[in-house]
Design a protein around this nucleic acid. Structure first.
Lengths: 209, 209
DNA sequence: TAGATTGTTAATCGATTAACAATC
DNA sequence: TAGATTGTTAATCGATTAACAATC
C-alpha cells in the first residue's frame, strides 16, 4: 500500500486520522482563511507536530510564517481521499441498519452515490427506499461487476457476512464497510473497515466500572 | 484510570481489544474446553505474546502446559467488562439510527437494558418502539438522574450533540456512545466512544485509490 | 517424567513529540 | 526586516514481539 508523496507507506493511524482532518477543514472553510498547525492541533486535539507530520506524508501544503490555507488544504484533502470523483456504493441487507443508512442520507452532498440495495427476503425485492431499489441478493455478484461498484456496506446477520464478502470480492469490489459483528475472512491487506457497535458499548461498560 | 490486577493502568489499545476477546470466547464456549494463546492468537489475528500480555493485565487465567480454560476465561471477561450486572441505557434521538438501534435488538441476551428513548419532536413523544417509550428531551436530565442511567447513545444531529452531552454528564451519565459526526466537548478522560460512519467510508475511499 | 504453555522481562519496532534550520 | 511557522530529523515514548525460566 504505497501512497505517500514520494512513494512512502502511509501508516494506518495516519489514514484513520485523515477523515478527521477533512471534517475540520470542511467546517473551517467559511470561518477563516488560514490556520497554523498549532491552532489546528488545539482544535482537533492533537499536537502541532502530529498535524505537520501527518500532512507532510502527502505534500508540502503549508507556508512558513503563514500556516495552511484552509481552502487549499481542503481541496488537497478532497484529492487525497479521492472524493473528487464519483464513488459507487451498495448496501447488502435491508434490515434496521441497512434501512437507516439508506434513509439517513449520509451521502448527501458527497461524491458517494448509493446505487442499489440487496436482500434475501423475496417479499422485499423490488421495493424502493428513498428511490433506491432492493434487488435479490442472487444478483449481487453480477450487479457489482457490471456497475463497477466501489464500496459495499455489509449489514446482514453475521452468519451470512462471509458468504456475502466472498461474492463481493470475487466480483471486484474495492472496499467493504462491515457492520456484522465478526471479522471477515479477507485476504491480508484488502480494505475493510469494521463498525462493531456492541464492541464500543462493551468498551464503555469496562471503562465505567 | 487504574484498573489492572495490581493497580496498573490498562493501555487504551488493550481496552479496545477486550470486546474482541469476549466475542471469540463467547463463540468458542461450546466448541472446545481449552485453548492456547498461540491458537487463540491465530484465530483472532494477533500474536500469542499479545494475547498473553493483554490477559495478564487482569489476572493469571492460564495454566502452563494447558492453556486457557474457555468457560473460565469467558466468565472472567464477563466480570472484567462488568456485564454481570445490569447496565441501563437510553438512546437520545429517534431518527434513523436511533430507531435502528432500538429495533435491531442489539441488546438481546445481554445485560444491557434499554430504558427509554428521547426526542425533541412533540409528534413522537409517547410513541413506543419495541416497547420502549419516547420521552420529551426536556425530561432527559431528570430521567437520567432518577433512574441512574449508565450509558447514553447520542443519535441526534451534530448541532444538538454537545448540548445533549452536557445535560447527560450534568445528570450523572457514566459513558456516552456518540453517533454524531463531531468530537464531543467533554472533560479529558470521560468515557466516550465514537462511531463515525462517514469517517470509515472516507478511509475506505482513500485506501481504494 | 517430558512436552507444552504460561506470565513476565528484555529487545524491537513504530508512533508521537521535541527541536531547529529554512524561509515566508 | 523580525516574527511566525513550516517540513524534517532526532529524541522520546509506548506498544508489540521475542525469549525464557517457571511449572502444570
Amino acid at each position: 500500500m504505497i501512497k505517500g508523496k514520494d512513494g512512502t507507506i502511509i501508516p494506518r493511524v495516519v489514514i484513520e486520522r485523515l477523515p478527521r482532518y477533512y471534517r475540520y477543514f470542511d467546517w473551517l472553510e467559511n470561518k477563516m482563511e488560514k490556520i497554523s498547525s498549532k491552532k489546528l492541533g488545539d482544535l482537533i486535539g492533537s499536537s502541532a507536530s502530529q498535524v505537520r507530520l501527518d500532512l507532510s506524508h502527502f505534500g508540502d501544503f503549508g507556508q512558513q510564517g503563514y500556516g495552511y490555507n484552509i481552502k487549499k488544504l481542503k481541496h488537497e484533502l478532497v484529492k487525497i481521499l479521492h472524493i473528487n470523483i464519483e464513488r459507487k456504493l451498495i448496501i447488502v441487507g435491508t434490515g434496521n441498519i441497512g434501512r437507516a443508512l439508506t434513509r439517513y442520507n449520509i451521502f448527501k452532498d458527497t461524491s458517494f452515490t448509493l446505487k442499489a440495495l440487496f436482500d434475501i427476503n423475496p417479499a422485499l425485492i423490488g421495493e424502493k427506499i428513498k428511490g433506491v431499489t432492493i434487488y435479490d441478493v442472487k444478483e449481487l455478484g453480477a450487479f457489482v461487476k457490471e456497475n463497477r461498484i466501489d464500496i459495499a456496506i455489509i449489514a446482514v446477520p453475521k452468519e451470512a457476512a462471509n458468504d456475502i464478502s466472498g461474492v463481493l470480492i470475487q466480483n471486484g469490489i474495492k472496499g467493504i464497510l462491515n457492520f456484522a459483528p465478526l471479522d471477515l475472512n479477507v485476504q491480508e491487506g484488502f480494505p475493510v473497515e469494521n463498525i462493531h457497535i456492541i464492541d464500543k458499548i462493551l468498551a464503555l461498560s469496562f471503562m465505567i466500572s
